[in-house]
Design a protein around this nucleic acid. Structure first.
Lengths: 355, 355
DNA sequence: AAAAATAGTGTGTTCGATAACACACTTAAA
DNA sequence: TTTAAGTGTGTTATCGAACACACTATTTTT
């Protein structure tokens, strides 16, 4: 265990009776080694537990790796901004080891823009790729291309079976929906009602992430003793007036309802919370996702009761970390990595750490 | 921002018009530098942003630091074991940089044993210390001794004002009590009762940690609309039969009670949960602290409803990390560091990550 | 006045891995 | 037979920081 006894290349060379140049060629598979030398060196290598001194290596190595992340365009205070922050932090740490990190943005609602990013990526000379998995068939395509070139890649957000990413980082959306359901059903009566607010972006379909959370939620509710009704509000991003009308309609006109809890399965809980704040309506329990600033403020003010966090920064950080560990140290990692499902309320949000 | 443009000692030497040896002497304050050279080098140093290449440094440096942690003896599956794991992990990472890490154990219920550990510590030639802050006046004493010797130290678990630790890592016990209160009071009726189980260790007093959690809990309850009663159960560690009797007494003999929720403010929630399991009594909500195995099992089985976690591993990890960052890179860090207050239920415990 | 100590400075070596380079051979083509 | 290309091997400069050491110039001690 003594770190001073670490075996060096020169030790191996001596043991094998060859020069350090030969050992180096064997280790790095650079060829130009005779059968005989190869055998001798490999024999020694299989005996001893050699791992290169990373300090010496990084010192000399002028090797520059380029890692590219394919992520959706995002605004500030957005789930993807937090992922991006995690990437940034990992990138800072790896910079001194010769890792250049770059982002390629695409429009998450436009498949064509994703394809364009892929094309661009393939023209770049990259050594590692992080892919936000929005368009599965395209991701499969690029994965195969990367497999051929032997370039490691990592998926974030969603996984795809039967591919060979170095790792996958994401959240277990289904179970996080179940978590929300468990908590809400503990807070309201069995015959009270629940409102699910769906936020649409330019009338496109909901993301898999959101659908999966909702499924986990509904499945749990179904199995439970819940006997109330579930109402749905279809909201549109940035359609302030229209959204208020839609919500008014549900709360005013739906006769006989007793909505006591509400949930949104994406980060737009603040829209609903803001509606309740403005209209001065009280619910027993309002649940949302993602610790974006707008949500945090409303949580602290008491208009949101629970936020479910998924550590986007950690996701980004670890995604890049896995690639740099692979490139620099040839380390393996866990294949499937789910982020924690964090529960944040007014009283513990100040202690939250996203990394 | 370009990592290749990092300034080296030779650059500084050239800029100052002296040799690298002189720059080195200035940087390391090793003396033997003329007024004139000193001024020239310092002028350059204040212009540029020099930070040594850690790879080159670690490669050449045979400097060995010794860091010692003063922590209480603990069994497996104990809060302090998890802190210890965090320390271990940080120690592994730092080993290759010449950091030797060692633990000194004391009996957390015996002041004299702590004093003895301090004495031992002072005989060792250490470069950094981590102190589990159990006995304040003794900790103040050793802190002053370390200040004199200019040895950095970090507090964990509890802080002391007016001292100069490099950093403090701990949990905000009071607020975590409030978190528990908020959640429990949301789950039971205003006139239902709460049981607080206190677990004593060899009839000694409760720890500050536990008292502070309880205070946070009670203060919140007081301010809330809660109108039920609070019962207390005084339990003794390992006194199985006696504990059952005490609990039987509360649940059976206290007439007219309606205890629906219970809480323990230390990691022994499993004792209470096990009692409820064996006696087949149902509560609406049982809350405990610390993600030790016994608690986790009972949470998954549904006998515990909520566990509050404080990331002991992270605490240990970061405590040592702060010291190694100081010793190796002379980095500063945040002074006061509270760990997150994690809320774990059956549905999200599988995704918990303690680091 | 000579010898010894000290201040101030620069040079050279070390750490371990890497890869360019030099050199000795072999084989194939001209 | 000469030339060119290719193979296998060992030697060596390099990365940047650290520090031992050698050297000169000055001061202090005998």
């Amino acid at each position: 265990m003594d770190s001073k006894k670490d075996i060096r290349i020169v030790d191996i060379a001596r043991m094998a009776g060859v020069s350090i140049g030969t050992v180096d060629r064997v280790i790095h598979k650079r060829g130009r080694v005779s059968e005989e030398s190869l055998k001798k060196v490999n024999a020694v290598l299989s005996m001893v537990n050699y791992s290169p001194n990373i300090f010496a290596r990084s010192l000399v190595s002028k090797k520059n790796y380029k890692v590219v992340a394919l992520i959706p365009q995002h605004s500030t205070d957005d789930y993807w901004m937090y992922i991006s922050e995690g990437l940034e932090r990992a990138s800072e740490e790896a910079k001194s080891s010769g890792i250049a990190f770059e982002r390629l943005y695409f429009n998450q609602y436009d498949r064509a823009s994703f394809e364009k990013s892929i094309e661009r990526l393939l023209t770049l000379d990259v050594d590692g790729v992080i892919i936000a998995n929005f368009f599965s068939s395209e991701v499969v395509r690029i994965s195969k291309a990367l497999d051929v070139r032997n370039i490691p890649y990592v998926y974030i957000d969603a996984n795809i079976e039967d591919q060979n990413p170095l790792a996958y980082f994401g959240t277990h959306s289904y179970d996080s929906g179940a978590v929300a359901a468990r908590i809400i059903s503990g807070r309201i009566g069995q015959k009270e009602d629940i409102l699910i607010a769906k936020m649409f972006h330019n009338s496109k379909e909901l993301s898999n992430q959101v659908l999966s959370r909702q499924k986990g939620f509904l499945d749990y509710i179904e199995r439970s003793a819940f006997a109330g009704k579930i109402y749905y509000a279809d909201l549109k991003i940035d359609a302030h007036i229209r959204n208020f009308e839609a919500l008014d309609k549900i709360f005013d006109e739906q006769t006989g309802h007793s909505i006591r809890a509400a949930i949104t399965f994406n980060s737009t809980c603040h829209v609903l919370a803001n509606y309740l704040k403005v209209r001065d309506r009280k619910l027993t329990y309002l649940v949302g996702y993602d610790l974006i600033e707008k949500n945090k403020v409303l949580l602290k003010e008491g208009y949101i009761d629970l936020l479910i966090g998924q550590r986007p920064e950690l996701q980004g950080y670890r995604a890049l970390k896995v690639i740099t560990d692979k490139l620099l140290l040839n380390l393996q990692s866990e294949k499937i990595n789910y982020m924690p499902i964090d529960l944040l309320i007014k009283e513990n949000i100040d202690y939250y750490q996203n990394l």
